[in-house]
Design a protein around this nucleic acid. Structure first.
Lengths: 185, 185
DNA sequence: AAACTTACCTACTTATTGGTAGGTAAGTTT
DNA sequence: AAACTTACCTACCAATAAGTAGGTAAGTTT
């Protein structure tokens, strides 16, 4: 892995573990055994690094969407929920949740890019839910947008909350989301 | 309002607006037109201030619980949900969500105290839900703890997410929580 | 009246932050 | 061979962070 990629990966870890304002160029340079100025060579400003990290999430989302393209709605949903399962197992939170908390402290460029990412995620979940509803595998009688938001908020906050409560809670929440969607009322 | 109370109030605002690591003693002293050292007089360390802010939330929760003691479950639930409605209207997030994001950057004392606060909130919501279920005004067939967690995660993340999407979303989520609990299936 | 407390102050320290100027060694292109 | 690019480096800077030492003016207690 080249240095630039390593910086993005580490920066992403740090943002999702400690938050945008708690990580520094120094954290990165120390961990990668390079100098502070070398990080600045790849990313002139912290904002530039932040933007690259969000871009990486855009790319990963696109890859996952493509990979799951021809799968059943339930499998797509599981793929989406797995993002959070992995995060939770690494004691990390979702990039959206992390940057939403720090939203008013980051530059407008980052605000805009994270808004677009949130929108992309929401749209994907809405597509999955609508497809599942059309195919009679998902059951819900509220708007697709609100249902998608309910699921996203459950997951987004679950990874945050389970830092404070216990690990089992996350699993229960996740299982209930699937059960709630697939039950025959 | 005395200075000490003003510092706690302002500190709480800052944590919930910008996050724990993005607010400084300087933010507080400037806004209150006192000197940095005067903030340190009331709160020797940032941790001490953080603890006082969490304590304030413990107190407010106790007050609200007492105030709603003899009310109907639906009214109690509305009182709980209103905490987030107020937060959302002020562009602030929940203290639990804010400190969960910054969890691994704060001292153990703060971690422990915020854990207890989260537990108190969860217990109250569980009490409300169980009472409502017993009185046949709420309907749900999963464990009370999981149901409480689903509602809390919806609200906790809704105030974060609506910073990125639009205001209407919060209202829809909130209304659906009530509808979902009170519908006759 | 003397001693003490409260609620501030000035002036400082040490550490860290994001960021820059300018250099270098190795490889690539022309 | 000369020019340029890449990927680092040393050495610095100004700003800000949390925190401290010691002083003062006003009020309270003994």
């Amino acid at each position: 892995m080249d240095t630039k990629t390593a910086i993005i990966k580490l920066g992403d870890s740090l943002i999702r573990e400690k938050g945008y304002n708690a990580f520094s160029f120094s954290d990165i340079s120390k961990k990668l055994s390079i100098k502070n100025a070398s990080v600045h060579y790849h990313f002139p400003t912290k904002t530039a690094l932040g933007l690259a990290i969000i871009q990486e999430h855009h790319n990963r989302l696109d890859q996952l969407k493509t990979k799951m393209e021809n799968k059943a709605p339930i499998e797509k949903l599981n793929a989406f929920l797995s993002i959070y399962t992995v995060a939770e197992s690494e004691h990390k939170i979702c990039i959206i949740g992390s940057l939403a908390t720090d939203f008013y402290t980051v530059e407008t460029e980052i605000q805009n890019k994270v808004k677009i990412l949130a929108d992309n995620i929401l749209n994907w979940v809405m597509e999955i839910l609508q497809d599942g509803k059309d195919k009679k595998v998902f059951l819900f009688n509220i708007s697709t947008r609100t249902k998608a938001l309910m699921i996203i908020t459950n997951m987004l906050a679950a990874v945050q909350l389970t830092r404070l409560t216990n690990k089992q809670d996350f699993k229960e929440i996740k299982e209930n989301i699937i059960h709630d969607l697939t039950q025959t009322c």
